[in-house]
């Protein structure tokens, strides 16, 4: 097991290298660069632009720029923003917790919605309640998050003269206030995720409920609730966790949108802003962090897989 984890961890390195090379190349293929945006219309002073590019190292060949950057990463240095030379590490230190909190809350809420609804739907397969539950789940999935967000911010302001606070309070400063600001976007994020989770839960439950051991436990006279929750759900949960791993990307996409609407100073907004200002090292650093997180989550998912399902053993 330990060897397996070690091997997996080692294998993440080429994957991460691949991701960073790709993203470094892609952002540089985008039209314009940071200098063009800093100088804006004053770009006509061509010499200034070239001097600035030289100062920022933007005129070096791609592989040199990349190696410089990745060398910094190896030394634990995420580099500086091109725009104002502030260390990216400081910026991420304040922004990452915001997105993590939003993501985890969203995940929690989606599980709270999806699992009970999915189990219920499976137990009552092909009844009106099943149809309603599933329609509801898909309806939630079918409404774009930005639209939900717009409604959630506009209508309460119109009807009750209320909005969630617009000046972000950190969790460490005032947890209650922080939660008050986080809860709406987290619910919207959770609702968006819960659709597919609920449907998978239902499908898994249907499959598991047919298994022999469930029949056995029913036959033994174990009560239905215990059967469902102790035996069936535990076995159905494995693929659900897999899906959660794959949903990370959805989570990040949702964070970009909801952080903008609810004025949360998170990574998603930072990523988009940096992309729009062609701040290459920032984009690269954020992508590196997101990618590492996704890979780690998927690793943990695979390990949980083994832990939950005794039939799987890793060699």
């Amino acid at each position: 097991m330990q060897r397996y984890i070690l091997r997996r961890l080692l294998l993440t390195i080429p994957a991460l290298l691949g991701v960073t090379i790709l993203v470094s190349a892609m952002v540089r293929l985008l039209p314009g660069d940071a200098v063009a945006l800093m100088l804006q219309e004053y770009n006509s002073y061509a010499q200034d632009a070239e001097d600035l590019r030289a100062r920022l190292g933007l005129n070096k060949p791609f592989h040199v720029q990349y190696l410089d950057w990745i060398g910094g990463i190896a030394r634990g240095d995420l580099g500086n923003s091109l725009r104002d030379q502030t260390p990216i590490r400081d910026e991420l230190a304040t922004r990452l917790p915001v997105t993590l909190e939003l993501g985890l809350l969203g995940l929690l809420i989606s599980l709270l919605i999806a699992i009970p609804l999915g189990v219920y739907s499976a137990v009552r397969q092909d009844t009106i309640s099943d149809y309603l539950a599933r329609s509801g789940a898909i309806a939630m999935l079918a409404i774009p998050g930005f639209w939900f967000g717009t409604l959630a911010i506009t209508l309460p302001a119109l009807w009750f003269k209320w909005t969630p606070p617009l000046r972000y309070t950190r969790l460490s400063e005032d947890p209650g206030k922080n939660l008050g600001q986080m809860i709406l976007p987290a619910v919207i994020l959770g609702i968006g995720l819960s659709g597919s989770l609920m449907r998978l839960t239902r499908a898994q439950m249907l499959e598991v409920l047919r298994q022999d051991y469930i029949r056995t436990s029913r036959a033994k006279g174990l009560n239905e609730r215990a059967t469902i929750f102790r035996h069936a759900l535990r076995n159905a949960i494995i693929p659900i966790i897999t899906l959660l791993g794959l949903q990370m990307a959805v989570l990040i996409g949702g964070a970009v949108v909801l952080e903008s609407i609810f004025v949360l100073p998170g990574m998603g907004r930072y990523l988009l802003e940096s992309l729009n200002s062609r701040d290459y090292p920032v984009v690269q650093a954020i992508v590196l962090i997101f990618a590492s997180m996704i890979i780690m989550v998927n690793l943990v998912v695979d390990l949980m897989y083994a832990w939950l399902d005794p039939r799987i053993r890793y060699s």
């Binding site: 717009t150 506009t154 309460p156 000046r167 609407i261 004025v263």
Partner: peptide
């Protein structure tokens, strides 16, 4: 306090809610 509010809809809500 000079707020950074990316979305128009959020700013309008802030005006209505009297928080801006």
């Amino acid at each position: 306090a000079l707020l950074i509010v990316p979305e128009e809809a959020t700013a309008v809500a802030g005006v209505r809610a009297k928080s801006i």
